[in-house]
């Protein structure tokens, strides 16, 4: 079982600061692997560990060169190696470009499954995984809460607003992972030390075959982005919190009254 996890290095949620041009101020933030992608990685590691013939997990990311350090955090958790597509020309890329680039990078890799988090905490588009699946012609199994591969096929429990559906597809396939798959593990010291020696393959645009994208008239890079951020405003601060005191029964009554007054229950 070989699994590629799309692991996006993002600024730690809650710490983001935008520059004047509405691009992320990467100097001012700690970079981590996107939270949902960590759930995807955890699911992938568990599948490989449970697989009778072993296998490995490979991380794939498109990010600036310094993201290598962040990818090491994923390697520390148990991924065998990582591929980082990095090129100054990619700065400011939109979701469409990202999907093309990741798809091109995946064409060079062999895998049974690709797993990605349902969305990222910085961009929040939630479309890259679907785009990659479409570009590669892979079955796309979204909102996975459980993943069960067997005999060349994979069965996924997909969360819906009303319950779940069970999807099945032949492998290779692309799955988007929800947090229902289980919380990511915490790295061991041996994992952290071992990650220092693991390989991170660097790919630039010149290394990738993007003829397919160009054939569709898609140009990669910030200048060619199909969408860009043109404004930003922080959320209005929350109102003063109301502190409920008194015995549990009184407090409960007060909370119920508060909610009822606002027709919230």
């Amino acid at each position: 079982m070989r699994i590629v996890v799309l692991a996006k290095p993002v600024p730690d949620a809650g710490q983001e600061r935008l520059r004047n041009d509405f691009r992320m101020d990467r100097e001012a933030t700690t970079e981590v692997i996107n939270g949902n992608d960590e759930y995807a990685l955890e699911a992938a590691l568990k599948l490989v560990e449970a697989s009778p013939d072993g296998g490995e997990v490979v991380l794939l990311a498109m990010a600036p060169d310094h993201a290598q350090e962040t990818l090491r955090k994923g390697l520390a958790l148990g991924a065998a190696s990582a591929v980082l597509v990095t090129d100054p020309a990619l700065e400011g890329s939109c979701a469409l470009t990202t999907a093309h680039v990741l798809a091109a990078a995946l064409r060079e890799l062999s895998f049974d499954l690709v797993i990605a988090g349902v969305d990222t905490s910085d961009g929040g588009g939630g479309v890259v995984a679907a785009g990659v699946a479409a570009l590669l012609g892979l079955p796309y199994l979204s909102y996975a809460a459980r993943i069960e591969p067997s005999d060349g096929r994979v069965r996924v429990r997909r969360i819906t607003p009303n319950g779940y559906e069970v999807l099945e597809a032949p492998m290779p396939a692309l799955i988007s992972a929800t947090q229902a798959l289980g919380a990511p593990r915490y790295p061991t010291l041996k994992g952290i030390m071992g990650a220092r020696r693991k390989e991170i393959v660097i790919r630039t645009l010149a290394d990738l075959d993007l003829a397919g994208a160009r054939a569709r008239g898609v140009e990669v890079g910030g200048a060619a982005a199909t969408a860009r951020v043109t404004g930003s405003r922080p959320r209005a601060p929350r109102g003063t919190p109301k502190v409920v005191q008194g015995s549990p029964a009184e407090a409960a009554q007060e909370v119920v009254t508060f909610l009822a007054e606002r027709r919230l229950i």
Binding site: R185, Y186, P187, T188, L189, K190
Partner: peptide, 8 residues
């Protein structure tokens, strides 16, 4: 438990 087994 933390550094080797990640059990906590």
């Amino acid at each position: 438990l933390v550094l080797e087994e990640s059990r906590f």
